[in-house]
Amino acid sequence: MYRHLLVPVDDTDASSEAVGYAVEFARLLGARITFLHVLTGEAMIGQRRALTVEPDALAWELLSKAEAAARAHGVTCDAACGADPAPCRAILSAARERDSDLILMAPRGTHDGDGRLGTQTANVLAGAEQPVLVCAVEQRPVPRRVTGALFDEHRAYAGVLHAWLRVLRSARLQDGCPDVAPLRACAEYMRACSVLRHGGNSNSCLDERLRGRTHVVSAELDELALRRRRHDRLTRELSESVERYAHGLMPALELEQAVSAYATFSWEHHGREAGVVFPAARRYLSDADWNAIDTVLGKRMGPRAHAQYGRLISLINETWADAGGDARRVSSPGELAAPWACLRT
């Protein structure tokens, strides 16, 4: 049976679903996983992310999330980055070099959004020397809408963290002092998200309904509840750190390292949600459960929240432009003290 799975990861809902399937499959088989993210040389810009995200920073985020999902299932894993304008070539090369006996992937390519196969996946199927397992993506409208909205919330949160680090790194590389205004705006965004979690949001609604349907993931839900409390504490501490920096009581580098460690913690938390809780929800929740969660989510995502997020993004982008920022000159998160999961063997 299969002993070593190669699982490509990217910034799509389908890929996040595939990670969940992969870690469950590997746990049942007693197999290990290599997660692979392919750097194509382009920064992430567009509808899915309101801010530019440098390729190496995105790899740090995505691979940290995937590894966290595997660890939550007790699955041995490592992570790697490839580089190729055509991801299928990097996937096939990694499968050969790492002696994987199964490639497990989502439909990937130009048609990822509608669940069709995708050109990159078709090319992997055509060129692979080992079996390729293509995961089906969620097609039920309400579960797909709910999990899609939650994935988008993860991306928005990640986008603010990437922007926060980008402002700090840019100032460091130019031997300048970061502007306090965008730093405070990022801290306030994180604090507001923390408060929202205590107000009965869609994630907590999903957790409660899942507890009522199965005990399979009770331990993971308990762990995530503990991590949320720790996350709230870290959020408060980061806000205090920004104020200490503003008053000259903390060096910019120390603040940058604190934000980087916070980002790693956040990636891991989101990875456990996406890789453990969401797959269980798809399996055990009823249509009535999904409709109830969808109602909560609809009330939460109002125009005011979108407007506040838009103002934050505008402030960060204006600060970046005024500083003459160039995404290609921003250093890797791996240069900081916080651990970076990529490229372990």
Rank of each mutant, 00 (worst) to 15 (best):
R213L: 02
R209S: 05
I313V: 15
R230C: 12
R272K: 09
G212F: 00
P251E: 11
R272C: 05
L336R: 13
A321D: 13
W320M: 15
R213D: 07
T319Q: 04
V277P: 00
I316Q: 01
R329Q: 12
G275Q: 01
G248Q: 08
E335G: 10
L249A: 12
A258D: 06
L297P: 02
L297V: 07
S241T: 08
R244Y: 04
V242F: 02
A225C: 14
R329I: 06
V259Q: 08
A281E: 01
E223Q: 10
W267Y: 14
S218C: 07
L210T: 05
T214F: 05
E220T: 02
A246G: 05
R211P: 02
L285D: 01
D289H: 08
S314N: 12
V216I: 11
A274T: 01
E256H: 14
H270S: 09
I316D: 00
L238T: 03
H306G: 15
L221P: 00
R230A: 15
D287Q: 13
R213T: 04
F265T: 09
A337S: 03
R230I: 15
V277W: 03
H231S: 14
R233D: 13
R228F: 08
E335M: 09
R236F: 10
D287G: 07
S314Q: 14
A327Q: 07
S241I: 03
G212M: 06
Q257A: 13
R272L: 04
G212K: 06
T235N: 08
R211H: 04
G325C: 02
R304I: 14
S314C: 12
H247W: 15
K299N: 14
E256K: 06
L315A: 11
P279A: 03
A274H: 08
P279E: 03
V259M: 08
V216L: 15
L249M: 12
P279N: 06
S286T: 10
L226R: 14
N291K: 07
H270G: 13
H306T: 07
A263N: 02
L312Q: 00
Q308A: 11
R236S: 15
W320E: 10
A292S: 07
E243Y: 02
L210V: 07
D232G: 09
